[in-house]
Simulated scan of single mutants.
Amino acid sequence: MLNLVTDRVALCYIFYKLKFIIMKMYYFTDPMCSWCYGFSPAIKKLKEEYPNIDLEIISGGFSPYSTQVVDDEYKDFLLYHWKNVNARSGQYFNHSMKFISETFRYDSEPSSRALMVIKEISPKQDFEFLSLMQKAFYVDGNDITNDIVLAGLAEEIGIDKSDFLKLLRSDEMKLKTNQGFQFSRQLGVQGFPTLLTIENGAVKVITRGFLDLSSLKEVVDNWLNSLSVPQPGVGQSCSGDTCEC
Results as ranks from 00 to 15, higher is better:
4 L>G: 01
5 V>P: 00
11 L>S: 06
18 L>T: 11
20 F>R: 09
22 I>E: 14
23 M>I: 14
25 M>H: 06
27 Y>I: 01
27 Y>P: 00
32 M>E: 10
33 C>T: 03
33 C>Q: 12
34 S>R: 13
39 F>V: 02
54 D>G: 00
57 I>Q: 06
58 I>H: 12
59 S>Q: 14
63 S>L: 06
64 P>Q: 08
72 D>H: 11
76 D>G: 03
79 L>P: 02
82 W>G: 01
84 N>E: 15
89 S>L: 05
90 G>S: 14
93 F>G: 03
95 H>Q: 07
104 F>C: 03
105 R>P: 00
119 K>C: 02
125 Q>T: 02
130 L>G: 01
130 L>N: 07
134 Q>G: 01
144 I>Q: 08
144 I>E: 09
147 D>W: 05
152 G>Y: 11
158 G>E: 07
162 S>V: 08
163 D>N: 10
164 F>D: 07
164 F>W: 06
174 K>T: 03
175 L>A: 07
179 Q>Y: 06
188 G>V: 05
196 L>Q: 02
197 T>S: 15
201 G>N: 13
202 A>V: 12
209 G>F: 03
211 L>Q: 09
211 L>N: 09
221 D>F: 03
224 L>P: 05
224 L>G: 05
226 S>K: 03
230 P>K: 09
239 S>L: 13
241 D>R: 11
244 E>P: 00
